[in-house]
């Protein structure tokens, strides 16, 4: 049973990690390429979830809702870029943090104003609503497997996009030295806008994918934003590859650690103390992990060369 339990927890960790990756990918690009700290990135995740909730209530189908939510999330991201963020690129980090924090407060209240404070629910699409039996009596929802598949697919797409296309080349160049790219005659403003809009769409996609399994509520992006920052710091700021690996590691360390830390501690402590300490240690694990990674590799696993 322990082996199957471990397998299931690893799947959970993978699924959690992939969602984190979708959010962190945009964040790391925006931070790495534009040197812009966008705290409001988590809000875009929330907006994605709300959009899919609204569209699925309207169309009655999750598929259509997802198709409509993606371009809407993109447009919303671009709108934020043009209206607010564009004016902050030349400011220092403190100004960016303050302004984007204001955007968080504004949008959290905004969704409450439009959709109310009560959590919304989105039903799992009919096609993916079943579960598969992994081991005796242990069911795993198909929808979560679909999230894993979608996450891996997006990761592969991103890999091709960043490493084998012209835009991707510019993005990588921008991450290394933005002013040099600009000096070579590339419209850096437009590149920034593309990167930003794309990042917002990925975060929106993550929000849309989790809407059926989590509740859609104001402030849902705030906690995950912290984890996304942990991911990009571990992965190396500006590195998609780093974000991918770090997101999976964080997902696994968090999920598996929570589940097995008390069991491992039981080997050295008595059961009551083990479960007490396990509870205390489990939430810290990812931060301990981050500290350890940064101790050995201060600029993350895959630092972008500058």
């Amino acid at each position: 049973m322990t082996a199957t339990l471990f397998f299931v927890q690893a799947l959970n960790g993978l699924q959690f990690g992939l969602i984190l990756f979708l959010i962190a990918a945009g964040l790391t690009l925006v931070f790495g390429v534009m040197d812009f700290i966008n705290l409001a990135h988590g809000v875009q995740y929330m907006v994605g979830a709300y959009l899919v909730a609204a569209f699925s209530a309207w169309t009655g189908s999750f598929g259509w809702a997802l198709l409509l939510a993606l371009p809407s999330a993109l447009v919303f991201g671009l709108l934020l870029e043009v209206l607010i963020f564009r004016h902050l690129y030349d400011r220092d980090h403190l100004d960016q943090v303050l302004a984007t924090f204001g955007v968080i407060l504004f949008l959290n209240q905004g969704v409450k104003f439009v959709w109310g404070a009560a959590p919304l629910s989105v039903s799992v699409p009919e096609l993916l609503s079943g579960s598969v039996e992994i081991a005796n009596g242990l069911l795993y929802p198909v929808y979560r497997l679909a999230i894993i598949a979608a996450g891996l697919l997006i990761a592969a797409l991103l890999y091709v996009l960043v490493n084998h296309t012209r835009v991707g080349m510019l993005v990588r160049a921008g991450a290394s030295n933005a002013s040099m790219v600009s000096a070579l005659g590339v419209n850096i403003q437009r590149l920034f806008m593309v990167v930003f809009g794309f990042g917002a769409m990925l975060a929106g996609f993550a929000g849309a994918m989790v809407a059926p399994i989590l509740s859609v509520e104001p402030g849902m992006g705030d906690n995950i934003l912290i984890l996304a920052f942990v991911v990009i710091v571990i992965g190396g700021i500006g590195s998609i590859r780093g974000a991918f690996l770090a997101a999976l590691l964080i997902g696994l360390v968090d999920t598996v650690g929570r589940s097995f830390a008390p069991n491992l501690l039981r080997l050295v402590l008595d059961p009551a103390a083990a479960s007490q300490t396990g509870r205390a240690i489990a939430p810290m694990l990812i931060y301990i992990f981050m500290a350890a990674v940064l101790f050995f590799r201060p600029s993350g696993l895959f630092p972008v060369k500058r």
Binding site: M1, N12, P119, L138, L214
Partner: peptide, 29 residues
């Protein structure tokens, strides 16, 4: 908000019942 790893533990321990207190959005999920 994501209880999947708890659920895996519950399924493997096979208790006769579970008791929980999860107000608000946590309870929904």
């Amino acid at each position: 908000l994501d209880f999947q790893s708890e659920l895996a533990k519950i399924a493997s321990m096979q208790p006769d019942a579970i008791f929980t207190f999860m107000p608000g959005g946590m309870g929904v999920n």
